[in-house]
């Protein structure tokens, strides 16, 4: 068993903010929305779907963004600030394994969050599972890559844990706005919707909505996610310092 990964997982659970914000908060929002009758009305502006149907993919994207932008960057930037990464450079393990362990933890928590959201939505509130399931998985995976890439970029750019918290939040809120958390993309004015489609969360939600409705996600949305993932990863790799 990899002691480093297990130790990092223990710290992640002990810290509590990761599970609370990455899994608990999206589920809580789903439960609140699911209990409002207004969210169960079929609406013409949403193509006959209910607001709750529309919100499930939005909450999935919200959970991914929360983990990648608000949970991951402060941990990594904090480790660098404290000299944890520097200390590991003097051991045979090296700091790259901490980075790897954190990525795995983010990914596993994302899987838990997405699975929980889909199951609670399905069995507590009768929201159908994504009809094009493979397409939904591809969209979710690309969204995770794009957002984690942005999270790594924030961790690379921030001098310390507190700064990473602030920068992560400053990126997070505009992104969830464009992802439609406050106003679903379908109901946005056309100009705003166009901007939204170019953002990672807007593209993610669009691709997930396509898959939820039974279509393969539009290739432009997938390509947008791929571009964000690649661009952010390159920028993060160039900027990242161990100390």
């Amino acid at each position: 068993m990899n002691t480093l990964a297990v130790t990092e997982l223990k710290l992640f659970l002990r810290e509590r903010s990761g599970p609370a914000f990455g899994v608990g908060l999206p589920i809580l929002l789903l439960i609140i929305f699911g209990n409002l009758p207004f969210y169960h009305e079929h609406r013409d502006d949403l193509g006959g779907r209910t607001l709750l149907d529309t919100y499930v993919p939005i909450l999935v994207a919200f959970a991914l963004a929360m983990l990648a932008l608000n949970v991951l960057p402060p941990v990594l930037a904090g480790y660098r600030e404290k000299g944890v990464l520097r200390r590991l450079r003097t051991t045979p393990a090296g700091p790259i394994r901490v980075l790897g362990a954190q990525m795995v933890i983010t990914l596993v928590t994302a899987v838990v969050a997405v699975t929980a959201l889909l199951l609670v939505a399905r069995f507590a509130f009768g929201v159908a599972l994504p009809r094009q399931f493979a397409g939904f998985l591809v969209a979710t995976l690309l969204a995770t890559c794009a957002l984690t890439g942005l999270g790594l970029f924030v961790a690379a750019a921030a001098p310390g844990g507190r700064a990473a918290n602030a920068i992560g939040a400053a990126v997070f809120y505009p992104l969830i706005f464009f992802g439609g958390l406050f106003l679903p993309i379908e109901t946005m004015p056309p100009a705003l919707a166009r901007i939204s489609h170019a953002t990672p969360l807007g593209a993610a939600v669009t691709a997930m909505q396509d898959a939820t409705n039974g279509h393969w996600p539009h290739w432009i949305a997938l390509l947008t996610l791929l571009a964000w993932a690649g661009g952010a990863a390159i920028a993060a790799a160039r900027l990242f310092r161990w100390e």
Partner: peptide
Amino acid sequence: TRRVGVQLQDGQLQDRLRVGEAMWLYASFY
């Protein structure tokens, strides 16, 4: 790094890492 142990001047550990865990973790590297 396998043969040289280093104590750095300003190296800190993770806040919530326990003493025993830190020892077993670092022991696992060698």
